[in-house]
Amino acid sequence: MVLASAYNSADDNAWCPGCGNFGVLQALKLALAGLNLEPWQVIMVSGIGQAAKIPHYLKVNCFNGLHGRTMPAAFGAKMANHKMTVIAAGGDGDAYAEGGNHFVHAMRRNPDITYLVHDNQIYGLTKGQASPTTGLGTLTGTTPFGSVDIPESPLAVAVAMDCSFVARGFAGDIEHLSKIIAAAVKHRGFSLVDILQPCVTFNKVNTYQWYKERVYNLDEDAAYDPKDRNKAFTKALEWGDRIPTGIIYKRERPVFEDSVFKPADKSLSRQPFTPPDSLELMRKYA
């Protein structure tokens, strides 16, 4: 049995006290331990931002790449090690702005990767500018008169892309979040978990209190069927007085790996290194 503490990292944590990221970190440790995965069996890939520092605060294999480029790097790492668990993480800017194109195409590709997006509706690391999910009218460093761009609904985008697992979590409800993350990791295929993550320093609108007043647990609603895409689309768009958390949409789709690997195949990185002879390949042109 693996304990959550097995994932503790000695690295110095740079997040602000009270930040929602701590809730995500704890929920992730609980989920991984619950899945009985050893730290060496997991690869985390992240971008740049406050959220993207999370792999350093866990003991896991980590590729902390570029801002916005989490999805492609995670895809490459997964293809080399398809037998390992690959989890990607980053902020809303990382995922939906700089990485927006990659996000869309990752869902088309459908590799067995879980993407945790710490959605604080703000750019934290760069000290408080608008993000793609910042609410209309919000005052930020770059929107001093209020944000005018309509916020993106990442969950609706995901359902539209027929993403194979779409969920929302809340960093203020660690227990539920850890269950969602565990379900996402277990799900075979690309899983998006958009996590409401209060930024106590730069987002004075979407606070713990603001979210607490609105979120409800969809997973407790036995009548809700996450396989119904039309209902899922409606749920994904629900945002206001009530905000659903839990599994919004779920769908079995062939995963990318199945198109290239056979069930018995080892990870490419652990296969014997036996390339073909160049002369043999050249002879075909004689």
Binding site: R69, P72, G76, A77, A80, N81, N101
Partner: peptide, 20 residues
């Protein structure tokens, strides 16, 4: 086939980190 060249190189680097 990547969605753009940015993805292409980041994928290749991810795979290089992954050991191939």
């Amino acid at each position: 086939q990547a969605e753009d060249e940015i993805a292409a190189i980041n994928m290749a680097i991810g795979a290089g980190y992954g050991g191939v």
